[in-house]
Every structure is written in C-alpha cells, then in structure tokens.
Computed example of a mutant assay.
Amino acid sequence: MSEDKGRQRLGRGLASLIGGSASSAVPSRAATPFPLPGAARVEEPGERKLAVSELSPNPRNPRRHFDETDLAELTASIRQHGVVQPILVRKTASGAFEIVAGERRWRAAQEAGLKQVPVVVREISDRESLEIAIIENVQRADLDPIEEAMGYQMLIDEHEYTQSDLADILGKSRSHVANTLRLLKLPDSVKEMVAKGELSAGAARTAVSQDDPEAFARQIVDGGLSVREAETLARGEPLPEPAPPRGSAQKRRTPPAPPSVAEVRESDTQALEKLLSDTLGLPVAIELRGEGGSLRLDFRHLDQLDHLCRLLQTRVSAESAEPRIRSL
C-alpha cells in the first residue's frame, strides 16, 4: 500500500465512522467526563441506550492497564453527571455489542451503578475497530510507553502505516513515534520496568544499544539516575563525583539534574491542554513554535460550537448574545 493510499484511508476512514477530522475523530479523555457549565446534554445522531451488561470490551484493545485513581475520579463524575460522551460500539456477527471506543467510560459506569449507557452503533470492520482502538488510546496520552509502542507497531504491521502516517494522525512528532518504537527492542524484563513506571521511557532508550540492556537498566534504577545521567553513562563517560554532605564524611550521590527546558515545556503544555479540555469540554491541542504557537479546538457538530461561542461571549459581555453559527 502506498503512503498516499494510507493517508487517504486515515483521512476518510475514521472521519466517516465517528465524524469530524481524522485527527479529532476520537474524543480525548479530558473531553469526556464533564459537560460545559449549565449546558444541556446534546444527543449524538444515531445515539441510543443499551444495558451495560449488553456491551463487551474490544479483545484487541492495546490498553491493558486502567489506573485505579483515574477510574475512581471518572466514576465519581459519571455518578454525578452521567456518561456525557456516548460509547462507540459495533454489532458483531454473533449479535453482541463490542466496544470500539469508550471502554474506560463503560467500566466507570458499572462502578457508578448505572444500568444503561448512551451508545452510538456503527458498522465497523475488524481492521477499522483495531485502528480506532489504538488511535483513541494513544491520543489520550495515558497509555504506558510500552502499550503505546505496541499500538504503533500493530498499525504498522497489520495495516502498512508509515511512521509519517502515525505522526500526522496522532498529532505527534515523527521523532516521538520513532523513539517510542525503539522501546520494543528492549528485553521483556526491561519493558516490564517501563510499564511499571520504575524506568522512564527516556532512560530506557539509552539501554537499547547496550550489550546487556537489562543490567544497564537495573543500574539506572538502582542508582536513581536521571535521563541525562543515563545518557552520560551510555556514552561510557564517568558520572560527576558526588559531593559529601555537610558535617559528614560519607558521600552521597549528586541529586538528579533538573529536567531540560524542552521537557518542562512539554509537560506544561500537556497540563494546559488537559485544563482547557476539562473547562471547555472539547479536545484541545497546543503547538508551540518559539515564543508563539497555535491553539486548536476540535468540535464534532455545530451544537458544540454553539456552546463554545456562548461560553466565550459570556466572558466578555454581561449580556449573552445568541451565536449565529448556523447562519454562517
């Protein structure tokens, strides 16, 4: 399959199934729990309600771990507001309803004691179900790095995606995709360290080229080394000699170096995206370019745009003017 055909499939396949642009086809986690302040729930086209017991999870969902704290927070929100974003499902050959996107909401709804949940039923093939499941989870940025890498590799192996395709559809840089895929070269023992959060993805990548990646990774974890220190060690250079503490002859290791400006900036950007998404109830993407950049808000139908306009107008004027979106 050529790259052009891959891009064409990406651009139209997901959009036709869920609506909106391909990059915003699946809502982010931050956009799902909370409605806009004072906004009535707007039903999606083709939406219906099904008993939670009628739904089953996607067996090929790349996400294997659901954080208990995050799930508890979503459960509390659903208990108060209900399921704001309907769950995308498909009907299988056996007549069952399989979740394509929204397994986390389904799990939280069960914990909240809901008997029924809103769903949108679409005709979706096995291939499309896999694509949506992977992209939906990766866009939320709460997969562990190994799950994310495995999701990328599944799309490459089974549907001939290129790294450029993945970067475009996920809104990631190509270097991020390439660096994430490198984690799959690690032995299973090191992958488990990353999945458990014992070893950061950045530090794990320095172990890929080592003769004994497991021993090198264990040295990083046991020594509490930062990514910068791990990179120094990987180059075969000596680590700075730690200074002894005051009033003691014993030496202690130099505290880990502070994160780089780029790392801090990326973390701050992700936090700001989540804050804006929680506030507006829409997926938000921020792209920084030097001291400037761009802010993108994705909406799937004009009702969401109307709500956004009302929210913005009430901030700048004591009198709320009715948006004229539909007349544009």
Results as ranks from 00 to 15, higher is better:
Glu111His: 05
Ser129Ala: 15
Ala249Gly: 12
Ala112Arg: 02
Leu71Trp: 00
Asn61Val: 08
Ala257His: 05
Leu130Lys: 04
Gly82Lys: 00
Gly292Ile: 04
Lys115Ser: 14
Ala101Tyr: 00
Leu71Ser: 05
Ser94Gly: 15
Ser2Cys: 10
Lys172Met: 15
Gly95Val: 07
Glu147Arg: 09
Leu17Lys: 03
Arg315Val: 13
Ser277Pro: 01
Ala234Val: 05
Met193Pro: 01
Lys196Asp: 14
Ser16Gly: 15
Val121Ile: 09
Gln250Ile: 10
Glu131His: 11
Glu43Thr: 14
Leu50Trp: 00
Val121Ala: 08
His65Asn: 11
Val284His: 02
Ser189Ala: 15
Ala243His: 03
Gly11Tyr: 02
Leu36Tyr: 03
Ser2Phe: 04
Arg7Cys: 10
Arg296Tyr: 04
Asp168Thr: 06
Val100Pro: 00
Ser200Cys: 13
Lys196Ile: 08
Ala201Thr: 01
Thr254Ala: 15
Ile18Gly: 05
Leu36Lys: 10
Ala149Gly: 08
Glu47Phe: 07
Gly281Lys: 00
Lys191Asp: 05
Arg64Ala: 12
Gly293Gln: 03
Ala203Glu: 06
Met154Pro: 00
Glu128Ala: 15
Tyr161Asn: 09
Val83Arg: 00
Gln163Glu: 14
Ser129Gly: 14
Ala204Lys: 02
Arg60Ser: 15
Val227Thr: 06
Ala51Ser: 13
Val89Tyr: 01
Asp298Asn: 13
Leu166Ala: 07
Pro118Lys: 00
Pro283His: 05
Gly281Ser: 06
His301Glu: 12
Gly197His: 05
Pro86Cys: 08
Gly197Ser: 11
Arg246Thr: 04
Glu198His: 07
Ala230Glu: 03
Gly95Asn: 08
Thr180Phe: 03
Gly20Gln: 09
Asp212Trp: 02
Ile146His: 01
Ile124Ser: 06
Ala76Tyr: 00
Pro244Gly: 09
Asn137Glu: 09
Gly113Gln: 03
Asp212Phe: 05
Arg105Leu: 12
Arg315Asn: 12
